[in-house]
Nucleic acid binder design. Structure first.
Lengths: 175, 175
DNA sequence: CGTAGATGGTAGACGTATCAACCATATCTA
DNA sequence: TAGATATGGTTGATACGTCTACCATCTACG
């Protein structure tokens, strides 16, 4: 019979699932970012950098390592660090092992902001994500994320021009 | 005994799961956006607008409806529409039902770009997401997204100041 | 050694996202 | 009907992300 639908497209259900998923994800991310900003004055990007540095020995880390941890482009990191250091959250220091590189260090203010931001974010994630999905579903998410990370790494190998996923991705769930 | 770990924090596993998930999601999104841009010259934002309009009757829709569908802030949509109309992808037309509003219409070029972008994106999602996760796991994603959407709507009701999720969210999986 | 290529990081330009302030129209209420 | 308030949309400032080009240093290989 092949009933042709008037104007609606015959979109596969899977793609609709993907679309609704991405929409909700964007909203959730926006909401969490807004909560963070209201509570701490920090942007999402600020928080990500601070949070990684907070766990680094001596609150110090090479820019390169930061890039690996966050999977950011080098230009993005460079700009972000420049902005944050003018705000006194971190400092650059010469890197001994490679004269091209820099060590990034949390200032006292940065350390405090990082700790505060972490608390706020943990609270938000607990309240919005954990409570809603439960630990089990969240674990499924992480599992799926690991699969996708593998896929991205494979793509990066096949197409070296694709910088999206060049280094190993932090998604194996074991730190 | 209480063996205190040297410098590593006692982060709950769930929060690590969340972090690795968000990192991978960001990477995947970046990768898909890059594929789209390379193939069509369109940004992710362009694509989202075009894709919604493509299914609208007459390829015409009120800006307000676009905002609902995409869950964007009005300022964001306004800027984006301004940019896209200078590129000839869409046009504004007076709205008959409310003199404050505007109808947004795809131009011929916009319609073509929208169709092309949709094909490219579907290809990418199929190749990266569907193939990797499988339909079942993706359905779980959509299901989880629906839960999160409910949670966001609830938050929006409780706190009217939170514009993040004011209107109904497209996440019930049934269009 | 010395040169060629790769790599860490920076700089500027441009597109994009958010916030706050604003204008015009709509709606509600006295 | 008039005034108060809410709402659709625009504007400008600012922060953010990406791209391209670039500089300095490192590494390989002659």
């Amino acid at each position: 019979m092949t009933v042709q639908q008037p104007s609606a497209s015959p979109r596969p259900a899977e793609l609709d699932a993907w679309r609704s998923y991405t929409t909700v994800h964007a909203q959730l991310a926006a909401h969490l970012a807004r909560e963070l900003t209201r509570a701490t004055g920090l942007s999402e990007a600020d928080h990500q950098i601070l949070d990684v540095l907070l766990d680094a020995p001596g609150a110090r880390m090479r820019a390169l390592e930061l890039r690996w941890a966050l999977q950011w482009e080098k230009s993005r990191l460079s700009h972000q660090i420049a902005r944050m250091s003018t705000r006194g959250l971190l400092e650059r220091d010469a890197c001994t092992e490679d004269a091209r590189g820099w060590d990034i260090i949390l200032t006292a203010a940065g350390r405090e902001a990082a700790a505060r931001a972490r608390r706020v974010r943990e609270e938000s994630v607990r309240r919005f994500v954990l409570e809603t999905l439960g630990a089990e579903r969240l674990a499924h998410f992480a599992e799926a994320a690991a699969l996708l990370a593998d896929r991205l790494n494979r793509a990066a190998e096949e197409d070296p021009d694709c910088r999206a996923a060049r280094a190993a991705v932090y998604a194996d769930g074991s730190g």
